[in-house]
Design a protein around this nucleic acid. Sequence first.
DNA 1: TTGTAGGCGTTATCAC
DNA 2: GTGATAACGCCTACAA
Lengths: 332, 332
Amino acid sequence: MATIADVARAAGVSPMTVSNVINGHPHVRDSTRAKVLAAMTALDYRVNVAARNLRRGRTGVIGLAVPEVNRPYFAQFAAAIIAAAQRRDLRVSIEQTGATRENELAVLGLSRNRLYDGLILSTVGMGAADTEHLKVPYPVVILGERIFNGPVDHVAMPNAGGARAAVRHLADRGCRRIAMLTGVETTEVGVSELRLTGYRLALQDLGLRYDPGLVQRMDEMSMGAAAERVHAMVTGGLDFDGLFCLTDTAAMGALRALADLAVAVPEDVKVIGFDNIEEGRFLVPSLSTVDPDHQAMAESAVGLLARRIDGGAGHEEFVSRFTVIARESTAV
Amino acid sequence: MATIADVARAAGVSPMTVSNVINGHPHVRDSTRAKVLAAMTALDYRVNVAARNLRRGRTGVIGLAVPEVNRPYFAQFAAAIIAAAQRRDLRVSIEQTGATRENELAVLGLSRNRLYDGLILSTVGMGAADTEHLKVPYPVVILGERIFNGPVDHVAMPNAGGARAAVRHLADRGCRRIAMLTGVETTEVGVSELRLTGYRLALQDLGLRYDPGLVQRMDEMSMGAAAERVHAMVTGGLDFDGLFCLTDTAAMGALRALADLAVAVPEDVKVIGFDNIEEGRFLVPSLSTVDPDHQAMAESAVGLLARRIDGGAGHEEFVSRFTVIARESTAV
DNA sequence: TTGTAGGCGTTATCAC
DNA sequence: GTGATAACGCCTACAA
């Protein structure tokens, strides 16, 4: 529990000099530096981050708010964010919002207590009407579509474009009755709606009729819910030969349900997901998907936030590129 | 950026009274409280956490160091920890160690900067020889076996017991040549060794001969590495009818490799994992596993840490119960 | 019930 | 190249 003052006393210098040594200031005589370093070692000195934060007005911590870390996609994203932050000497504190609007707003409020230097917020429940809430006195990067015109940076996925490509991929492999497994209509520009837009655009491209019966909405994007829904679709006699799932996680559930019902994938139904979670490669059959390049998104989110923390102005938007990854679940 | 002083001025009271209102002290006249609250709202006052931390000597943040959040098991665990911490008004900052000894030690050092009130450390790379490093001036809960006699609490999994039960489960279903997919020998009491102990004990119980050739060690516990290794085992002509995988993640890779080689699961080889990750239920075939009750472990880890933060003494150890979950991969 | 004084540990400023 | 001073915003003790 030694303080700078203790070290200064031991080294026979002033606290300020110790501080200068700690912070690598150039104008310190080598012999002085040596004395100070020796004293620091002897006393096992550690900086008190709270005091430094108070003085500097910064915490060195950024917040990351995601629905739940225990979802492969967000886990992957969180891992990438933490790694990117580490490279910039920032620590990451994670908040779980459960994908609800209230919790997303609560996180914005929390951070106003200067807990974090900045916040990366994955918006799922919030909508355009909540733009006001984004007017907070610290940098925010929204992970999601440009829902808001507020004073925030955005890191977006190519939702519509990726979905469009996924559906085209199914059609290229011969599918004509392509179903989509998506979420409930939350906000007009939520992930579900954007990917649904891509789905519809693809159908148009292909000259296929849009059949609302093929669009299946689920309350919750879990493997279990997806499995149940697909089960119901098949036993209910819905006719489809392709299935585009909103997320890979949902696709995992779908694959399981199809296996239960002895519907062969890809022979009877071809399945494609979205996110490229690591697990997809190892499923049986392995899962075709849209890869939105998390790495680039994470790097960009942290980069934008860091720039803003350092006083950068102007609101930027980053949209990652995507790739369609063809695996067994859509093989011909 | 209003401070307590600003609020006090606006409300016509002293800063101390504002502080009392903020912290819910009882002896404040209602009318005074009302005035203060009004001023706080008007000025949009937010406490400065850095200042409060400095004064209180606490940060309200606990560190959670895991190899990587992007591994289903640790993601699940992290989610549970964060939820448990949230219930106690603690925030969780995550560090990724990559399962290396150096990084685990580095995290211990980091936290000495009073960044966290306490630390939950998942030890993988550290061994008994590192006990010294655990002597840090803040509470630590080790997630892992009682490797150390140091001044720390432990939250342990029933590694040996769970492994023993898993192997017995395979034998009960008719397996006689049971292979184990495990990690490299790191520490004498690492997860790999403990579960291997369970494996050997089970063989003894069953009167089966221990065949070192059936114990397959991998450098890295990933799906990809496991798939490769199992591929090599089969194409190399290794004779086995049961496979106990160190983790469910490894088992996912194993299942994939077996499918590639047209080895039927469970008919030709039965497979069981360890961890009960959520995905296991949805694999094809669904994965039998040992469930170590993460929920209880997480709750207990945060509970122990919170108690220590609040000054509790004495080193406790919590070992969770386990259950063997039988699914398709070990069906008869 | 409310207010005053002081210090938590660090660092920016500016003088020497 | 080094150091004195002051301040970051809050809260514990004590006084009124």
